[in-house]
Nucleic acid binder design. Structure first.
Lengths: 125, 125
DNA sequence: GTGAGAATGAGAGGCAATCTCAATCTTCTT
DNA sequence: AAGAAGATTGAGATTGCCTCTCATTCTCAC
């Protein structure tokens, strides 16, 4: 069972459907990043069938609720991961597509610097 | 006239066609970044007509030859700019799409750090 | 349980970018 | 300067990722 007691409060008023539970379960149990197509593939393996529209729609909802982080890695595709504490970034191999996480205090420093100098509020990348 | 005497050597064996001259001229005279569609639009205003295929194909060629830099800014689209000396990066406004260039020695520092720690050769972003 | 309002599936649609292939152009060789 | 080999081009089809539409189904406050 993948019932999640906190989910109702996390969904902040949005109905808690079986599909949403399944999707969030799949994202949480994907240890690395996962894209929409793969999520759809894995969802189709479960008892409930699921449509690609539902996958995309709910990724947007999760994103808006701050449950999930969207990353545009590689060429076109977006990858999704659970929003977790440690701020980190990604290295993407141009040849094999391998994705490696990394973190560095320099990122924070750079963001602060840039925000001050240009009046932007940096939210991505 | 936009004839460029160096172009032949810059093209390193690839035929120098009127379209390539036109495209490179347009990119060089676009002061900021420019995307394929806009390049196509501007190309259509010149004496020669030009197809979207040609724009995309030649952007790939220019990129490979190191004449032009490809940047994925904003959501989907790629933007192109002449490869020029000062290394810089971009801020993209999520609301209005405005693009601001910036530079910082911290970027270099970060790249060095990351390359050392993970054995990657950082080429983008 | 009922009803208002939200989510879902299937397929159409949108958009950036790539591919196909016959016709045309560049450049190298005489 | 002409010919030939090989690359480029245009137009439209195609792919890939993602969003939209709308009739049907589900969720949850009452």
């Amino acid at each position: 069972m993948r019932g999640n007691l906190n989910l109702l409060s996390e969904m902040k008023g949005h109905p808690v459907t079986a599909h949403r539970q399944l999707l969030l379960h799949l994202i949480r149990n994907a240890h690395d990043h996962i894209d929409a197509k793969e999520l759809y593939r894995r969802g189709a393996n479960e008892e409930e069938s699921i449509s690609l529209s539902t996958v995309y729609r709910n990724l947007q909802v999760f994103k808006k609720l701050g449950l999930v982080e969207e990353r545009r890695l590689g060429q076109m595709r977006c990858y999704y991961e659970i929003k977790q504490k440690p701020e980190h970034h990604h290295l993407v191999c141009q040849r094999c597509g391998k994705i490696v996480d990394f973190e560095s205090p320099l990122i924070r420093k750079l963001m602060d610097e840039v925000q001050h100098q240009h009046g932007f509020n940096v939210t991505k990348k």
